[in-house]
Amino acid sequence: MIMAALKIADIRNMSAEERNEKLKELRNELMHERGVSAMGGAPSSPGIIRSIRTSIARILTVQKEEEKL
Rank of each mutant, 00 (worst) to 15 (best):
V62C: 00
R50P: 00
T54M: 10
S51Y: 02
I59T: 04
S55R: 05
R34P: 00
E67A: 09
S37D: 03
R34N: 06
S55P: 03
A4H: 14
E33Y: 11
N20G: 13
E21C: 05
N13E: 08
K22E: 10
H32Q: 13
G40N: 11
K24H: 00
M14P: 07
I52A: 05
G47I: 02
A42M: 09
R50Y: 01
E65N: 05
R50H: 03
D10N: 13
T54C: 09
E21S: 10
T61G: 02
L30P: 15
S37T: 15
E17W: 02
K7N: 04
A5P: 13
I2N: 14
A5I: 08
A5S: 11
A38C: 04
L60Q: 15
R50V: 02
H32W: 14
E25F: 09
A38L: 09
E66Q: 06
I11L: 04
L26R: 04
E65W: 04
P46S: 10
K24D: 00
H32I: 12
P46G: 08
Q63V: 08
A9Q: 05
M1W: 01
R53W: 00
R12W: 00
V36S: 05
D10P: 02
I48Q: 13
R58Y: 12
L6Y: 14
R53I: 03
A4S: 12
L26K: 08
E33K: 15
M31S: 14
L6W: 12
I11K: 08
E25C: 02
